[in-house]
């Protein structure tokens, strides 16, 4: 098991390298001059070249990549072109905010999704199954930015129960888990939880229904296990696959949702990414994408390890 984990960690090194290369290249193959947005339209050629030198755009691509990578490893992602502030701290702030939102949405989505899915699969073809399936299909199909706007209209504009946008009085850097802040979290978190809820519910339903069809469940009943004993076996059999799906969903949520964070002006990574794209802020864009990609790689690693420790058939394969 330990050798498996070490090997799996080793595998992530080339993946991370590849990811960083793609991050770097993506930005450079996109058309347009990155300095256009901060230079005055009538800037002299001299000034342009001076700025190019400051940001290092005058060197060759491999050199730029290595310098950028070297600094990135040390935690220096350069400075934002638009604000001049270090990208690392901007991304760090945004990641914190996205984490708050994503983890809350995850807890809501996975709990409800797992519950709906399990009940639906266990009582397959009953009315409760049809209800749970309907909810999850709606969850997956409804565009979530639209749902976000509808929720804002209902709960903020009409009912005036909850604030429509922002992350509370402390802003992006000073989050506190009190009502004053949490009321800003409720609408975006619920909106964000709807898709993972639907996907998890459908996955778990299919898994549980499939497992209950298998002969070993008869075997468990035949040896006299009570329903709760059989249930424990079903959960352990469903866990590896369910976990993989959940890990992937968590990855998507951690990446932040540009749409949801924009609708609710939530200062997370999605919001930041949107800003960076519209302002052609290359260092910020690179840094944000890189950090998000690393999150995904690490998360996949964790899911793999968890899955392997749960399913003995994967271990020695």
């Amino acid at each position: 098991m330990i050798s498996f984990i070490l090997r799996r960690i080793l595998y992530t090194v080339p993946i991370m390298l590849g990811v960083s290369l793609v991050c770097f290249a993506l930005v450079h193959i996109s058309p347009g001059d990155p300095l256009v947005s901060i230079l005055p339209p009538d800037a002299s050629v001299e000034l342009q070249q001076q700025m190019m030198a400051i940001y290092g755009f005058d060197r060759s691509y491999p050199e730029q990549f290595l310098r950028w990578l070297g600094r990135a490893v040390q935690g220096d992602l350069g400075n934002s072109i638009a604000t001049g502030r270090p990208v690392a701290s901007e991304v760090f702030n945004a990641v914190g905010n996205t984490l708050i939102l994503a983890v809350t949405a995850t807890i809501i989505g996975f709990t409800l999704g797992g519950l709906f899915g399990f009940v639906a699969g266990y009582f397959r073809d009953s009315w409760i199954d049809k209800l749970a399936t309907a909810i999850s299909v709606i969850g997956v199909s409804v565009p979530h930015y639209w749902l976000g706007m509808v929720m804002v209209i209902i709960f903020s504009v009409e009912l005036r129960w909850l604030p429509a946008t922002g992350a509370g009085p402390g802003g992006s850097s000073q989050w506190i888990w009190d009502w004053e802040h949490m009321q800003y979290l409720i609408l975006p978190a619920i909106t964000m939880s709807v898709i993972p809820m639907g996907i998890v519910a459908r996955t778990v339903r299919a898994l549980v229904a499939d497992i209950l069809q298998q002969e070993f469940v008869s075997g468990l009943r035949a040896k006299g296990l009570l329903d709760r004993g059989v249930l424990a076996h079903v959960i352990k059999n469903a866990a590896p696959t369910a976990l993989a799906v959940m890990g992937l969903q968590l990855g998507y949520l951690l990446g932040g949702s540009i749409l949801i964070e924009t609708v609710f002006s939530w200062p997370g990574t999605g919001f930041l990414l949107g800003q960076a794209i519209f302002q052609r802020d290359l260092p910020l864009l690179q840094g944000t994408i890189l950090v998000l990609a690393m999150f995904f790689v690490i998360l996949n690693l964790l899911v793999d390890v968890a899955q392997t420790s749960l399913d003995p058939r994967l271990q020695r394969g």
């Binding site: 298998q214 002969e215 070993f216 075997g219 035949a222 076996h233 059999n237 749960l310 058939r313």
Partner: peptide, 11 residues
């Protein structure tokens, strides 16, 4: 059971 590879819990 007839097929023990199906009748035992794999995990």
């Amino acid at each position: 059971f007839q097929d023990p590879s199906l009748a035992l819990d794999p995990v």
